[in-house]
């Protein structure tokens, strides 16, 4: 049958301290976001990308350890990854249209 089996029956158990470390990292990154926010004026245009980057790192930590994707099958990782890919697609093509239109913005 399927592509991803023969995994042995004992599921992987993440050690307690790994969970605590990941949580610690998440707290730290949250503080980092706020600290970066206070230097928004100095960071200028980089402020948004930096905030987004930190959020992405946090998201990856959650996905890999809390959601156990690190020890999950390739198929499940592909499935979850597909969601982000297709979102990027939606943004890309909608954006392609909007930012190549002859601009005629409302006065609002």
């Amino acid at each position: 049958m399927g592509n991803n089996h023969d995994e042995n029956h004992a599921h992987h158990i993440t050690p307690l301290e790994t969970y605590l470390k990941v949580a610690g990292a998440l707290f730290a990154l949250t503080f980092l976001t706020v600290i970066a926010h206070h230097f928004n004026n100095q960071l200028g245009v980089l402020a948004a990308p930096i905030a987004f980057l930190i959020a992405t790192v946090k998201a990856v930590l959650v996905m890999l350890w809390f959601m156990h994707l690190k020890y999950d099958s390739v198929m499940n990782r592909v499935i979850f990854g597909a969601g982000f890919f297709f979102l990027a697609l939606l943004l890309f093509f909608s954006g392609l249209d909007i930012w190549t239109r002859v601009a005629e913005f409302s006065t609002l």
């Binding site: 093509f93 392609l96 249209d97 190549t100 002859v102």
Partner: peptide
């Protein structure tokens, strides 16, 4: 990758 073909005359940009 093709949905914009429903929108050729909607005001979508020519590039798209």
């Amino acid at each position: 990758f093709v949905w914009g073909h429903h929108m050729f005359v909607s005001g979508q940009s020519t590039t798209a």
